[in-house]
Structures are given as structure tokens and as C-alpha cells.
């Protein structure tokens, strides 16, 4: 899994790429937790841009749950631009009921 984090002033954008699975979930967890802290500090919404992500297994999804818990309601975590596989995974897991899902990153904040 590759990872980029950027702040455009309106939102903090995390861009994981590749797969989040049993090999990469710990790395994803560490990076996302740090991103949550940064977003809380900056008082910005956190957008996870899923466009570069092939898929995420249940471990990655549960990392999202932990990140939401870590944010303690101080910020909202959005999921943006999932590919067809990720859209299906979010629907199957009902995570699309737990997190706001948008088509584009720029639909959040600003």
C-alpha cells in the first residue's frame, strides 16, 4: 500500500493506493491514526480518497472504525471516489451506512 497525505486548506486528504489487506492494515492504521490527529489539530474534515485503492478487506474497514473512534466526534471522516469494487465492498459491509461516501474529494469542505 502506498500513502499520500495533503492539506489544501479546506480538507485533509489521505490517499491510500493499492490494497489494504492482512499484509498492509497495520501500516494503514498507523498512517490513518496520525492523519486523524492532524485533521483534529487543523480542525479540518478528513477525506480518504479511495480512487487509488484496488480493494480493502475487513481489516481495513475496521481500521476506519478505529479512526472514527479516535476522532471522538471532533471531525468527520469522509470516504471519496471509491472504485466499483470498493463501492460494492462498502455496500456489502454496510460501511456506506457508517461513513459518508462522496463521488469526489472536492465535495467535502471548502
Amino acid at each position: 500500500m502506498d500513502w499520500r497525505l495533503s492539506n489544501d486548506g479546506a480538507r485533509l486528504v489521505a490517499q491510500p493506493a493499492g490494497r489494504v489487506d492482512e499484509e498492509s492494515w497495520k501500516d494503514f492504521s498507523a498512517r490513518l491514526t496520525a492523519a486523524v490527529h492532524e485533521a483534529v489539530e487543523a480542525k479540518l474534515p478528513l477525506v480518504i480518497d479511495l480512487s487509488g485503492l484496488e480493494y480493502m478487506t475487513s481489516k481495513g474497514l475496521r481500521v476506519l472504525t478505529m479512526a472514527k473512534s479516535e476522532a471522538k466526534g471532533a471531525i468527520v471522516i469522509h470516504l471519496a471516489a471509491p472504485n466499483a469494487a470498493m463501492k460494492r465492498i462498502l455496500a456489502i459491509s454496510r460501511y456506506n451506512m457508517l461513513f459518508p461516501v462522496v463521488d469526489r474529494v472536492d465535495q467535502v469542505g471548502g
Binding site: 481489516k59 459491509s93 460501511y95 451506512m97 457508517l98
Partner: peptide, 21 residues
Amino acid sequence: LGDAVSLKQDTGHASNVVAVD
């Protein structure tokens, strides 16, 4: 999984996607 980590957390049950993984 969404229910298992939210509404049904701590009731002691698993989800289909975790079983597959």
C-alpha cells in the same frame, strides 16, 4: 460488519466478510 462494529458491538458475533478474510 457494519452492524457488528456498531449496533451489535459486544454481542459476541461475527460477520460474513471477516469469515471470508
